[in-house]
Design a protein around this nucleic acid. Sequence first.
DNA 1: GGATGAAGGTGGCATAGACCAATGGGGCCG
DNA 2: CGGCCCCATTGGTCTATGCCACCTTCATCC
Lengths: 279, 279
Amino acid sequence: MDADSSGTVLKRERARDAVLELIESRRPGDAIPSERALCATLGVSRPTLRAAIDELVAVGLLVREHGRGMFVAPAKITQELVSADLALTLPQAAGAWSSRLLEFTTLQAGARVGRKLRMSPAAEIVYVARLRLVDGAPMAIEHLHIRAELVPGLSAQELEHGDLYEHLRERHDVHVHEAVQAIEPTVVTRAEARLLDVPELSPALLFERLTSDTTGCPVEYVHSLYRGDRYRIVSRLALGPAAAVEPVEGGHHPGIPPGDFAQGDPITSSTRGDIQSGD
Amino acid sequence: MDADSSGTVLKRERARDAVLELIESRRPGDAIPSERALCATLGVSRPTLRAAIDELVAVGLLVREHGRGMFVAPAKITQELVSADLALTLPQAAGAWSSRLLEFTTLQAGARVGRKLRMSPAAEIVYVARLRLVDGAPMAIEHLHIRAELVPGLSAQELEHGDLYEHLRERHDVHVHEAVQAIEPTVVTRAEARLLDVPELSPALLFERLTSDTTGCPVEYVHSLYRGDRYRIVSRLALGPAAAVEPVEGGHHPGIPPGDFAQGDPITSSTRGDIQSGD
DNA sequence: GGATGAAGGTGGCATAGACCAATGGGGCCG
DNA sequence: CGGCCCCATTGGTCTATGCCACCTTCATCC
């Protein structure tokens, strides 16, 4: 499928591929031989074997459990890709979302957040950290920074149940209108990994969003981290020279670069977050 | 910002933090002491020291150069996040895209690709691997799988210059109509890292796209890998109870989970790929 | 019979040491 | 003087080994 331009064949790569075959001959949840056993059969040292395994864990094909063993990761993961036909199978439900409050305080905005919300660094904001779960399993960590003056008396109750934007509208007369959101890939830190229940350095999606109300005034700055092995963004794009709903000048659709010189082609999209079904 | 609930202090964490201080006392491009020297001063073994360094390389704070040494990484990286105001500064141009052909052959579809393109595994496809560059710098690796029967005489020329979809339309009478695309975060493998000129295990975005023509017949299956440190997806979302352009049932917008019980809220989006300025 | 605890297996962390491979400079030879 | 080669240095890979923490199991004891 791909060519390796270097002639060297790392020992740990051979080991990795060998273990990969073991994985493919098994089903999700099945155990694979222990590290020490694999060392013997593959003829490599344990550190080397572990380095090979690390790669498989990093891409989510294998999970380690201290004191128990190593198991084929549940369901399909990032690297093996959506093996099911992704077209039209996507409507599978998103599951039940819930929240667990991690932190909820009022503090000064500080330089970075203050700049984003266009307010004084000394002005107060409500800082909320919450864990978002789907069917009880951790899915994302959200860090909310909301202008404190807009939401006096904001309760923990509102942050743990229901739609926040709806609460803002109903109880606080704050009408969110639009948002600018940036998405980039990243890897989780040790602390984040613990919260999300994934291995350290696992791939994740980082969302950064600035939400404004109908007057264009920034309301909240959100910084979220989504598990990469369970969360996926699915879009349905209408291509062709026809549709031209939003000619964002100089833009192109993610994943579809423009021609070498010209710009623009695709248009109209329907994008949504999708939870990967998995065990 | 976060608390470490575990009492253990890994040796490699102490080492990492120590090296981190060294980095912060220097400027981008400066060299730091050699591995062996650091082992001595920090009192750890080389594997341990290397494991610590690995983390710093993974988040892009340090770069290694074989035979030369280790250097403080140039400028901002993923982890530092978009420190520039993301709102409304995004129109910065995308730069000049170009392509470098890595592979261009005709082969049998195989099970996986055949299923996606709804064709026999033995039927032939054109397989193209190309490196996409922006202003000469590697940005993405694309793997195209196109039904061979649709594009007889497809030339390397067409794959290296201009917009492929336009070529398909003009020269091959293939009219792409819509596509379903999935995006997930991942990390780059060794070989991919070399091509993209980033450290191994760096964050990246994986795009998987199935493109169909006006008759609904699958045309191509694309599998692309975008650098995470230079590529970012920026969306402008219209929120509020108003707009309801596409009520994808059970869907929610990426990064904005629905309420705990109810579903649906945001709508209408404008999404684009964005190249991060700077090196 | 059910709780308890020791034993053995498993992954997690760390060590010391060896050799390989790429780099760059300094010395040797033409 | 100039080009070439050798070598010290640095990162890259791998081995062999030890100890620790965690989990499961099973025999034991109450």
